[in-house]
Protein backbone atom coordinates (compact mmCIF):
# COMPACT_ATOMS: atom_id res chain seq x y z
CA UNK A 1 0.00 0.00 0.00
CA UNK A 2 1.39 3.32 -0.99
CA UNK A 3 1.59 6.00 1.65
CA UNK A 4 -1.34 8.31 1.33
CA UNK A 5 -3.37 5.86 -0.63
CA UNK A 6 -6.79 5.73 0.97
CA UNK A 7 -8.30 2.31 1.22
CA UNK A 8 -11.47 2.37 3.34
CA UNK A 9 -11.69 -0.69 5.41
CA UNK A 10 -14.98 -2.44 5.37
CA UNK A 11 -16.95 -1.50 8.51
CA UNK A 12 -17.80 -4.15 10.89
CA UNK A 13 -21.40 -5.11 11.41
CA UNK A 14 -21.33 -3.56 14.84
CA UNK A 15 -20.28 -0.22 13.35
CA UNK A 16 -22.96 -0.45 10.69
CA UNK A 17 -25.65 -0.91 13.32
CA UNK A 18 -24.29 2.01 15.36
CA UNK A 19 -24.31 4.31 12.33
CA UNK A 20 -27.72 3.13 11.29
CA UNK A 21 -29.17 4.00 14.69
CA UNK A 22 -27.35 7.34 14.77
CA UNK A 23 -28.65 8.37 11.38
CA UNK A 24 -32.17 7.30 12.25
CA UNK A 25 -32.06 9.31 15.47
CA UNK A 26 -30.69 12.40 13.68
CA UNK A 27 -33.28 12.04 10.99
CA UNK A 28 -35.92 11.95 13.66
CA UNK A 29 -34.55 15.11 15.32
CA UNK A 30 -34.32 16.90 12.00
CA UNK A 31 -37.90 15.90 11.30
CA UNK A 32 -38.99 17.21 14.69
CA UNK A 33 -37.14 20.50 14.19
CA UNK A 34 -38.54 20.90 10.70
CA UNK A 35 -41.98 20.08 12.00
CA UNK A 36 -41.74 22.65 14.77
CA UNK A 37 -40.31 25.23 12.37
CA UNK A 38 -43.08 24.59 9.86
CA UNK A 39 -45.59 25.01 12.63
CA UNK A 40 -44.03 28.21 13.90
CA UNK A 41 -43.39 29.69 10.46
CA UNK A 42 -46.87 28.89 9.26
CA UNK A 43 -48.28 30.46 12.41
CA UNK A 44 -46.07 33.49 11.84
CA UNK A 45 -47.14 33.87 8.24
CA UNK A 46 -50.72 32.77 8.61
CA UNK A 47 -52.55 30.53 11.00
CA UNK A 48 -51.16 27.59 13.04
CA UNK A 49 -51.28 24.23 11.24
CA UNK A 50 -54.32 22.19 11.95
CA UNK A 51 -52.69 19.81 14.44
CA UNK A 52 -53.23 19.19 18.15
CA UNK A 53 -56.17 21.57 18.03
CA UNK A 54 -53.96 24.66 17.84
CA UNK A 55 -56.08 26.10 15.09
CA UNK A 56 -59.16 25.96 17.24
CA UNK A 57 -60.48 28.91 19.15
CA UNK A 58 -59.84 29.25 22.88
CA UNK A 59 -62.16 27.93 25.55
CA UNK A 60 -64.39 30.70 26.79
CA UNK A 61 -65.54 31.16 30.40
CA UNK A 62 -69.05 30.56 29.16
CA UNK A 63 -69.37 28.29 26.15
CA UNK A 64 -71.46 30.67 24.09
CA UNK A 65 -72.87 28.91 21.02
CA UNK A 66 -73.10 31.34 18.09
CA UNK A 67 -74.84 28.57 16.16
CA UNK A 68 -77.83 28.60 18.47
CA UNK A 69 -78.18 32.37 18.43
CA UNK A 70 -77.46 33.08 14.80
CA UNK A 71 -78.52 30.03 12.85
CA UNK A 72 -81.40 28.84 14.96
CA UNK A 73 -82.75 32.08 16.39
CA UNK A 74 -81.70 34.26 13.47
CA UNK A 75 -80.21 37.12 15.47
CA UNK A 76 -78.36 39.75 13.50
CA UNK A 77 -74.65 40.34 14.35
CA UNK A 78 -75.36 43.98 15.08
CA UNK A 79 -78.02 43.01 17.60
CA UNK A 80 -75.25 42.27 20.09
CA UNK A 81 -72.17 43.91 18.55
CA UNK A 82 -73.86 47.28 18.52
CA UNK A 83 -71.00 49.64 17.90
CA UNK A 84 -69.70 47.99 14.75
CA UNK A 85 -71.18 50.54 12.35
CA UNK A 86 -70.17 53.61 14.33
CA UNK A 87 -66.89 53.02 16.08
CA UNK A 88 -63.47 51.51 15.97
CA UNK A 89 -64.45 48.55 18.12
CA UNK A 90 -67.38 46.23 17.43
CA UNK A 91 -67.73 45.77 21.21
CA UNK A 92 -68.78 42.73 23.18
CA UNK A 93 -72.29 43.00 24.64
CA UNK A 94 -72.62 43.60 28.37
CA UNK A 95 -74.09 40.98 30.64
CA UNK A 96 -77.20 43.12 30.90
CA UNK A 97 -77.97 42.63 27.23
CA UNK A 98 -77.66 38.86 27.56
CA UNK A 99 -80.01 38.99 30.52
CA UNK A 100 -82.75 40.73 28.55
CA UNK A 101 -83.50 37.29 27.11
CA UNK A 102 -81.83 34.95 29.58
CA UNK A 103 -83.72 36.25 32.54
CA UNK A 104 -86.42 33.92 31.25
CA UNK A 105 -84.94 31.94 28.36
CA UNK A 106 -82.69 28.91 28.72
CA UNK A 107 -83.75 27.61 32.12
CA UNK A 108 -81.81 24.56 33.16
CA UNK A 109 -78.89 25.01 30.78
CA UNK A 110 -75.58 24.92 32.67
CA UNK A 111 -74.01 27.78 30.71
CA UNK A 112 -77.04 30.01 31.15
CA UNK A 113 -76.93 29.37 34.89
CA UNK A 114 -73.29 30.51 34.85
CA UNK A 115 -74.38 33.68 33.07
CA UNK A 116 -77.10 34.32 35.64
CA UNK A 117 -74.60 33.93 38.46
CA UNK A 118 -72.32 36.49 36.86
CA UNK A 119 -75.24 38.85 36.33
CA UNK A 120 -76.44 38.46 39.89
CA UNK A 121 -72.96 39.29 41.18
CA UNK A 122 -72.88 42.38 38.95
CA UNK A 123 -69.63 41.35 37.36
CA UNK A 124 -68.41 41.28 33.80
CA UNK A 125 -67.47 38.15 31.87
CA UNK A 126 -63.78 37.77 31.26
CA UNK A 127 -64.02 36.65 27.62
CA UNK A 128 -60.88 35.37 25.97
CA UNK A 129 -59.85 37.40 22.98
CA UNK A 130 -59.91 35.59 19.64
CA UNK A 131 -58.97 38.28 17.12
CA UNK A 132 -56.09 40.55 17.87
CA UNK A 133 -54.03 42.97 15.83
CA UNK A 134 -50.83 44.47 17.24
CA UNK A 135 -51.13 47.75 19.08
CA UNK A 136 -49.41 49.75 16.35
CA UNK A 137 -52.29 48.91 14.03
CA UNK A 138 -55.35 51.15 14.00
CA UNK A 139 -58.18 48.98 12.76
CA UNK A 140 -61.56 50.64 12.51
CA UNK A 141 -64.63 48.44 12.18
CA UNK A 142 -67.00 51.16 10.99
CA UNK A 143 -64.89 52.12 7.98
CA UNK A 144 -64.82 48.52 6.72
CA UNK A 145 -68.47 47.79 7.39
CA UNK A 146 -69.61 50.95 5.63
CA UNK A 147 -67.30 50.38 2.65
CA UNK A 148 -68.39 46.80 1.95
CA UNK A 149 -72.05 47.29 2.66
CA UNK A 150 -72.16 50.21 0.24
CA UNK A 151 -70.00 48.60 -2.42
CA UNK A 152 -71.79 45.27 -2.46
CA UNK A 153 -75.14 46.66 -1.40
CA UNK A 154 -75.44 44.20 1.45
CA UNK A 155 -76.42 44.38 5.11
CA UNK A 156 -73.81 45.31 7.68
CA UNK A 157 -74.06 41.89 9.28
CA UNK A 158 -73.16 40.24 6.02
CA UNK A 159 -69.89 42.13 5.88
CA UNK A 160 -68.54 40.58 9.09
CA UNK A 161 -67.87 37.27 7.36
CA UNK A 162 -65.27 38.87 5.08
CA UNK A 163 -62.77 38.78 7.93
CA UNK A 164 -64.37 36.70 10.63
CA UNK A 165 -65.68 33.81 8.51
CA UNK A 166 -69.09 32.37 9.14
CA UNK A 167 -69.20 32.87 12.87
CA UNK A 168 -72.82 31.84 12.88
CA UNK A 169 -71.84 28.27 12.14
CA UNK A 170 -69.07 28.11 14.75
CA UNK A 171 -69.78 26.44 18.06
CA UNK A 172 -66.51 27.78 19.36
CA UNK A 173 -65.33 30.98 17.68
CA UNK A 174 -62.02 30.67 15.92
CA UNK A 175 -59.97 32.91 13.72
CA UNK A 176 -60.97 32.31 10.12
CA UNK A 177 -58.47 34.47 8.28
CA UNK A 178 -54.79 35.10 8.70
CA UNK A 179 -55.24 38.81 9.50
CA UNK A 180 -51.53 39.37 8.97
CA UNK A 181 -50.36 42.53 7.30
CA UNK A 182 -50.11 40.76 3.94
CA UNK A 183 -53.71 39.70 4.28
CA UNK A 184 -54.77 43.29 5.04
CA UNK A 185 -52.69 44.79 2.24
CA UNK A 186 -53.85 42.28 -0.37
CA UNK A 187 -57.44 43.00 0.44
CA UNK A 188 -56.80 46.75 0.38
CA UNK A 189 -55.20 46.37 -3.07
CA UNK A 190 -58.05 44.26 -4.40
CA UNK A 191 -60.58 46.81 -3.25
CA UNK A 192 -58.64 49.88 -4.28
CA UNK A 193 -58.37 50.98 -0.69
CA UNK A 194 -55.39 53.08 0.39
CA UNK A 195 -52.17 51.19 1.06
CA UNK A 196 -50.35 54.16 2.52
CA UNK A 197 -48.63 53.11 5.77
CA UNK A 198 -50.37 55.83 7.79
CA UNK A 199 -53.73 54.41 6.87
CA UNK A 200 -53.18 51.93 9.69
CA UNK A 201 -49.90 52.82 11.42
CA UNK A 202 -49.61 56.03 13.46
Amino acid sequence: MLPGDFQPSRPTNKQLIKWGILSLVSLFFVAVVVGVLMFVISAWLGKPLSVFGYDEGPDQPIAFPHTRHVQELGLDCTFCHRNVETGAAATIPPVGLCMTCHAVAGDGLAEVEKLREVAAAGEAIDWVRVHRVPDFVRFNHSAHIIFFSEQDNILSSEVCAVCHGDVGSMVKVEQARYLKMADCVNCHRDNNAPTDCVTCHY
Binding site: C80, N83, T91, A124, D126
Partner: peptide, 12 residues
Amino acid sequence: EHELFVESSNEI
Protein backbone atom coordinates in the same frame (compact mmCIF):
# COMPACT_ATOMS: atom_id res chain seq x y z
CA GLU B 1 -54.99 40.99 30.66
CA HIS B 2 -58.68 41.51 31.15
CA GLU B 3 -58.89 43.62 28.08
CA LEU B 4 -62.32 42.57 27.03
CA PHE B 5 -64.29 44.20 29.75
CA VAL B 6 -65.38 46.62 27.06
CA GLU B 7 -69.11 46.60 27.00
CA SER B 8 -71.51 47.74 24.37
CA SER B 9 -73.21 51.04 24.00
CA ASN B 10 -76.68 50.00 25.02
CA GLU B 11 -76.03 49.98 28.74
CA ILE B 12 -73.01 52.14 29.31
